[in-house]
Amino acid sequence: MPIDKSMNVLIVDDYKTMLRIIRNLLKQIDFNNVEEASDGTEALAKLRAGNFGLVISDWNMVPMTGLQLLQEVRADTRLKQMPFIMITAESKTENVVAAKQAGVSNYIVKPFNAETLRDKIEKVLGHA
């Protein structure tokens, strides 16, 4: 089934430059409906208020980290099936394991390229 690239995508990072980069890379692969949040708390509020088809989140943010956001999403009846990709510089085995145990859909380590982003989105949305 073809992926609906008109879906709303929420990108979450506390670093504005990174949000800008991810937004532009998503645009390059034809995802044009992109909203931004600068931490987990703001992201959760937007997710609960809006209609999103995918979350792409950094991990290391305050006050709510990406992992806590993921746990909140998976604990929310309405959001628990939401495809969730973690993009982070945290590349230790225990990080990947913790994210997987919390229910992450896929995991991208920084620095990454557009091809990896496209590949993981296709895998995640293909299984969604």
Partner: peptide
């Protein structure tokens, strides 16, 4: 509880790359 997981970028010699993470996933 997350302190042990927030380490930032690893040195290239110690870091897992995307293919390692894909295998782990």
């Amino acid at each position: 509880p997350e302190d042990d997981l927030l380490n930032g970028p690893q040195l290239p010699s110690q870091a897992m790359d995307q293919s390692d993470i894909d295998k782990l996933m």
